[in-house]
Each structure stands twice: as structure tokens, then as C-alpha cells.
Nucleic acid binder design. Structure first.
Lengths: 225, 225
DNA sequence: GTTTTTTCTTACCCACGGGTAAGATATCAG
DNA sequence: CTGATATCTTACCCGTGGGTAAGAAAAAAC
């Protein structure tokens, strides 16, 4: 799984020297920006805040980004890139629909513990311009479609109990997305443990019992009306 | 279930007359504020925006609230009040732990489709002062504890498969909380349908199969490592 | 060393929005 | 009707933060 450079990386080192190295400096800006966006939100993070952590001044940032929003958009792009990767990997490697869903939950949950991954679901899309907003929504829609197709596949191959894939996808995605809200990189729970527990808990909700000739049987109880 | 006054209620009528009726005017402010906070976020909603929708001017708002944050805090209070109500009701009425969890999901999901309810989980706690933040966190912790206790109860009475209640609660709460992100009051999906589908999907993940003498049996598959 | 280019700083502009002062206007009590 | 009170408006203050102008200082090119 992708990891950040360090626990609380001091990327100001990238700007210690004035040597021309735009690539690593640009990345340093993105890393600290993402960190601050997650810590204080985009709106409450000023460019002065970002610059301060890098031991430079605000206008210096404009050598690497056209404006504040471009920094935000780039965070989204890096995050969705991570997700896209795991999505493609799963579509190829795994077997049944249920296995794909489980693999999705596991990998996706892990991404939700990485800064750029967290940005994708935690940051407020409303801070984006309408064009950038549209772009991000395209990425997200793709993820949603992919998850729904995995579920649909599982229903068809019999590994998943028949259900409305749309609602089921919302349910799963919600559970996993919410990780980016409460997860703390310095906290007790290791990412891998969260990921595997979530994969188990959520898929068992979808898994069809194979006893009694394929007929699902759970302790009966309908919620209220 | 609690419902808002109308679909897109024009609460400016409350300020049409200058008759002294502070209570309903205060509520009108809260309703439109909550509406705007959910639409544009707290940070991007100016007091002028709120006032404009009520056909008054910004300073008039200060007759009903000390400052902007108090409006936000009041939204939180009303929302958590709704949740607290259903929580108490469930603790009394329902039977097994699993039934309580199911009832919780159903009722809680419904609250997440009501404006003040959505505010609780959708709005950014970081916009609150440290005291207000502490207050809100107390409410939220209470909800979390309650859910965990339902799960624990279910494990003890045998209605729920043994698991880590903490992780399970995060999973369930996440799925349901996320509703407040994607739910649109004017959308296709009716709230009750979402609620009941969620209750079913998520509890079946917890429900212990009663076949084979209490031994759980689902289609085997462990997610990655 | 000199020139050119990149990098970064100091100083500034300005729009926006929370909040206040002071006064006008309506409502109500008597 | 009159004075007191609640309600609301116009006009303003000012801190904050995104963004820019202009130039200094360091790196690289030669």
C-alpha cells in the first residue's frame, strides 16, 4: 500500500536550498498543503500557512501553482490516481464478484488512510470551480460505477445475495469513505487492520450463505416497518 | 419521523410582519441557515445570504443570535436532539441487540435525511469554537457509545456474530452518516426506502446464521491478507 | 567574471464578510 | 394618544486572505 513519506514530514527541507529542483518542491508544497487541508480544512488554510511550514513566503508558491485552487485540484488528482490504480488491479486479478468487492473494500480502505486519498473524500468539493468540480465528479462517478459493477457481477455469479446494487454501493462506499473522517495517522488503529476488518464485516453482509442449498438463512428480523 | 416544514420552505414569511414573535422568527433563521449551510457549507454562507433569503438585512439577525457561530451551534443542538430522541426510544422498546442495531440504523438513517440531522454529521466541526466543539463532541460520543453498547449487547445475547464493536460501530455509523453527503431531499430515493434497505443490508452483515447449530456459515473468502 | 534566468522577498492592493453604532419605524402597554 | 420597547435599516469599521508588482539574490550558462 502507498505510504506517505513520513509520519509528519517536514517538507521545508525541500526549500532549504535554492537549487533549481521544481519537481520535488512542487511535491513538497502538495504534501504540506494536503496535510493542512486535512487538519484545518481548505477554507481555513491560508497560503501563508502553507508557506510558513515550508519556510518560505506566500508569493513563492505562485512559482509552482497558478492559484490556491490548483493546489487543491492537484490533491484531488493524486488521490483519485491512487484509487484508479487499485481499481484496475482488482478488475484484473480477482475472481468472483464478492471477492472483487472484498478486495475493493480492503484496498480502498487503505487508500483512505493516505493523505492524498483522504483528500478525495474529505475535502469539500464546493471549494472547487465549476470546471474542476466537474472533473472530480467524473473521477468519483467512475469509482461508483466500478463498485456497482462488482456487486452486479457478484449477484450474477451467485456470490452475492440479490439486492439493489445502487443502495449497496452507497452503503459500502459510505462506510469506507467515512474512514477518512475519523482516521488519525498517529492513532492506535493500524490501517491494515481497519481495512481487513471492514472487508470482512461488510462482505459478510453481502455474502450468501451456502448451507441449505443456497437459500440464505439469517436470524430473522425486519427493522421497524 | 420528523419532517421539515416543506420541500423548499420560504421562511421569509415569518419576517413579513413586524409583529413581535421572536420564537418563530428565530426558528425561521435556523431553518434557512441550515438549508444554506448544507447547500453551500457554513464557510461559504455569509450572514448576508441568510438575511437575503429572509428579506431582511444582516444586522437584524443579531437580534436573535449573538453571532454566526451561535446559529451553527444551534443547528447542531437541534440535530443531536433528534438523534437523542430515537436513541432513547430504541433503548426502551426493542428486544435483542441485533434488533436494536437494526432499529438504530433505520431511525438514524431517517434523521440523516432531515436538515438539522444532516447538519450534525455534514457540517465541519472545525468551524466551531473550542467550547462549542467540545459540546458537540460530547453529543457525538454519546451516540457512538450507544451504538457500541447495542452491538455488545447483541454479541452477548447471541444475535450478533462476535466482532470488535468499535470497528463494527465505525462501519455502520460511517455508512449511515454518509447518507447526509449524497442525500438530496428532492431526489428520487425516498428516505424510508433508504433507511429500510440500509438496516437490512448492514444487519445481515452482523446477523448470525442459525443453521448448523449456531455455527456461522457464509461463502468463504478472506480479503487479501 | 559577466550575463541570463530562475527563485524568492518585501510591500502593497482590494474584495469579502463578521460585527458594531446610531438612528428610524413600527408595535404594544397604559 | 403617548411614551417605552422591540425591531429593523443605513452606514460604517477592520481584520483576513487571495493575488500582484517590482525588484533583490542566488544559480546556472557562457
Amino acid at each position: 500500500m502507498p505510504k506517505d513519506g513520513a509520519a509528519s514530514p517536514s517538507h521545508w527541507k525541500a526549500f532549504a536550498s535554492r537549487r533549481r529542483d521544481p519537481a520535488t518542491k512542487r511535491e513538497a508544497v502538495l504534501q504540506t498543503a494536503a496535510h493542512l487541508f486535512l487538519e484545518k480544512s481548505y477554507g481555513r488554510t491560508s497560503l501563508n500557512d502553507v508557506a510558513e511550514r515550508l519556510n518560505i513566503t506566500k508569493p513563492a508558491l505562485y512559482h509552482y501553482f497558478r492559484n490556491k485552487e490548483e493546489i487543491l485540484l492537484e490533491c484531488y488528482r493524486l488521490g483519485t490516481g491512487l484509487i484508479e490504480e487499485i481499481l484496475n488491479e482488482i478488475a484484473l486479478h480477482c475472481g468472483t464478484g464478492l471477492e472483487k468487492v472484498a478486495a475493493f473494500i480492503y484496498s480502498y480502505a487503505n487508500v483512505m488512510t493516505v493523505n492524498f486519498g483522504r483528500c478525495v473524500m474529505r475535502l469539500d468539493e464546493g471549494d472547487l470551480s465549476s470546471e474542476a468540480f466537474a472533473e472530480v465528479r467524473t473521477y468519483k462517478r467512475k469509482i461508483d460505477r466500478r463498485l456497482r459493477s462488482f456487486i452486479q457481477e457478484g449477484i450474477e455469479d451467485g456470490s452475492i445475495t440479490p439486492c439493489d446494487p445502487k443502495i449497496a454501493a452507497f452503503s459500502i462506499a459510505g462506510a469506507v469513505n467515512w474512514i477518512c473522517i475519523w482516521y488519525e495517522p498517529e492513532g492506535e488503529l493500524p490501517a491494515e487492520e481497519i481495512a481487513s476488518q471492514f472487508a470482512r464485516t461488510l462482505t459478510q453482509g453481502l455474502a450468501r450463505t451456502t448451507t441449505n442449498g443456497g437459500e440464505r438463512e439469517v436470524s430473522r428480523q425486519e427493522p421497524l416497518p
